[in-house]
Design a protein around this nucleic acid. Structure first.
Length: 318
DNA sequence: CGCAGGTCCTGCACGC
DNA sequence: TGCGTGCAGGACCTGC
């Protein structure tokens, strides 16, 4: 479940169902899903077993769960503490199951969680749960990584491998004017910049197209020509579209994209341009004008936009 | 065959 | 010449 709202839905599910529980067993069924772990699958299994899951965190599309020691141990100092890092890639799911649930087709990693005595009882009477990583395309993965202080706020810790990821638009410390300055200093197309996770994180192909449409900006607009008002309008549009999607449980086109309980979100019904090629632009239609959404191939992927309210700039950067 | 929601690595061009 | 940076394109996967 790729973009920020979908990852946030998963984070909330992990916070509700899994946080606080100790890991009693780990099984990696496909080593490619732990390829980013130093030492590979066997090291991942042994290093995660016996640890306790703390409160899950997120930046952009990255999710991580800081690891404490055993429940009877003091919480570790964040210096040197490790986290379980999750990236869903294109097709990853993190599911909370009971150990006896039928095995999913693309199940790659299972993490057995002990009963803490305070959790919800399951139908079988026990309350052991299982965190399952299911991933068809194996672009995603799980790995352990040390927590390091963030560059701009040293009191805030994040996994070393996430340190290069910029703050996302729903982060309380997100700084739109800093993003505007960095956009102006780039020489590229606007959508390329939006998809660059080191500039602003959490945006993928769906929300990039939706935010550009809301801000009435074309994807090939040269970033160095943006004025403050346009940047502000665009970043507000990104925040709005993400909050709207979150309120509906995220965007799901099929069973590939679900929350930890396997349920789909509904935001696909609110999309204005993504996947809407050939249909009427809703804004133009409301204004009594007819304009059809078009889809371009670009960066080896598709970009949908309305040629009337998002005109191609005179000098475009593709 | 083309297409799918993401990231990472490589190689190139450029400036110091 | 060498190095660092920014940018573009391809690689990585499976299934419909």
């Amino acid at each position: 479940m790729p973009e920020l709202p979908e990852v946030e839905v998963v984070r909330r599910g992990v916070a509700t169902w899994a946080a606080g529980r100790p890991v009693s067993a780990v099984e990696v069924l496909d080593a490619r899903s732990t390829r980013r772990h130093d030492g590979g699958a066997a090291a991942f299994e042994s290093q995660l077993t016996g640890r306790r899951l703390a409160a899950p965190q997120r930046r952009g599309k990255y999710l991580w769960v800081p690891l404490a020691g055993r429940p009877d141990e003091e919480p570790a100092d964040p210096h040197g503490q490790q986290a379980l890092v999750v990236h869903l890639g294109m097709s990853g799911q993190l599911l909370v199951s009971t150990p006896s649930d039928p095995v999913q087709r693309h199940l790659r990693i299972r993490i057995l969680l002990e009963d803490t005595g305070t959790g919800t009882r399951t139908a079988e009477g026990g309350s052991a749960l299982e965190l399952r990583f299911v991933d068809q395309r194996i672009f995603g993965g799980l790995f352990l990584d040390p927590l390091v202080p963030s560059a701009d706020r040293p009191e805030q810790f994040l996994p070393a491998s996430v340190a290069h990821i910029a703050r996302d638009p729903l982060d309380p410390h997100f700084d739109p004017s800093a993003v505007h300055r960095r956009l102006r200093s780039r020489k590229t197309g606007l959508k390329r910049a939006l998809l660059d996770q080191s500039l602003v994180s959490g945006i993928g192909n769906i929300y990039a197209d939706e935010a550009l449409w809301r801000a009435r900006l074309h994807y090939a607009r040269p970033t160095e020509t943006l004025n403050r008002g346009e940047s502000a309008r665009l970043l507000t549009a990104v925040q709005d579209v993400m909050e709207d999607a979150l309120a509906q449980g995220g965007t799901s086109f099929d069973a590939l994209y679900v929350n930890v309980n396997g349920e789909s979100g509904y935001f696909d019904r609110s999309l204005n341009v993504y996947g809407q090629a050939g249909r009427m632009c809703p804004r133009c239609a409301a204004e009594g004008r007819d304009s059809l959404i078009v889809k371009d191939r670009f960066m080896n992927r598709s970009s949908a936009y309305c040629p009337r309210c998002q005109p191609v700039p005179r000098r475009a950067r593709w």
